[in-house]
Computed example of a mutant assay.
Amino acid sequence: MTTLLYDGSFNGLLTAIFIAFEYKMYDCSIDTKERYQATMFDSPETVMTDKLKAQRVWEGLCKKVSNHARREFYYAFLSGLPGIEDTLLAYVRYAFQNNSTIEKNFANSVVNMVSQTAHSVHREKHRMEAFVRFIRLQDDLYCAFISPDFNVLPLVASHFQDRYADQHWLIYDRDRDYGIHHDPQTRLVSDVIIEKSTADTSLSTTVHEEEVAYQTLWRSYFDHVNIQERRNIKLHLRHVPKRYWADLTEKTAGV
């Protein structure tokens, strides 16, 4: 079986899907170069990202499904789950083979999988928008460190760009070694690649002298508004899962 290897980008995936259709590869798989593990039965082929080919696939999908369905398609891609590329290829095949809309056909396992995955990514996006905590550094750069289950940085960028338009900030994804950086002068958000060791060192050595006081103040406020008689640990964990606590100021002991 042929395995098409792409660079991990969304345009790269769409290019691989175009190749699968162009060469009528009915029995093929798609995987990232980074994640791929060769087997004796595979015949890997590297796909070079081509924006024109990617655009043709996307435009074809636009004619077949709604904006909501295309958003789910993109959200499912951002999940980064093993095998999600094959699911999305099957989704495109199914969409192109049907004259009617497919997005509500949850009896189909592929449509249901894309919808369920997109829902999980959307929920993680909202949690990141709520749980991000910035730390002020000496150069007045506000940094936040997150470890989401999925690659949600492209989805939360506009939220923080609108909310903190006049501030210089960086949100860094530890698990994926990249972040989004906002420049208040240009009002633009850009991707930046940062090594984890560099990010951890910067956080521990360049924290602004006033940051500790602000964090102490915030924890004090959090403790005082917390009514002990109304504590409901199960409900609290449902809304604030424990895996997020390491990055929440009110849950940590300090910088």
Rank of each mutant, 00 (worst) to 15 (best):
C143F: 11
Q161T: 12
H208L: 07
Q97M: 04
N151K: 03
F73P: 03
V110K: 02
D175Y: 14
Q116V: 14
P148V: 01
L188Q: 15
A144E: 04
H182G: 00
V156E: 01
H122Y: 15
E129M: 13
A199E: 01
R163P: 07
L155V: 05
N98P: 08
L170D: 04
Q161M: 12
F145L: 10
D140N: 14
A118S: 07
I102G: 03
R123S: 11
V192P: 01
I146M: 09
M113E: 13
K125D: 07
K104S: 15
S115L: 03
S202M: 15
I180T: 01
H208K: 07
D166M: 13
S120I: 00
F106V: 01
D173W: 00
S147L: 12
V121F: 07
V132T: 09
I193V: 11
L155W: 03
D175P: 07
T101K: 15
H68V: 13
E72K: 10
S100K: 13
M128I: 12
I193D: 15
S79E: 02
K196P: 02
L203E: 05
S120P: 03
N151A: 09
D86L: 10
I193Q: 14
V132F: 03
A165T: 06
E103G: 02
Y142R: 11
G179L: 02
H182S: 04
V114S: 01
H119I: 00
V114P: 04
V192Q: 04
K125F: 13
P82C: 11
D173S: 06
Q185K: 15
V132M: 04
M113C: 13
P148C: 07
Q161Y: 07
D191W: 08
T186K: 09
I171W: 01
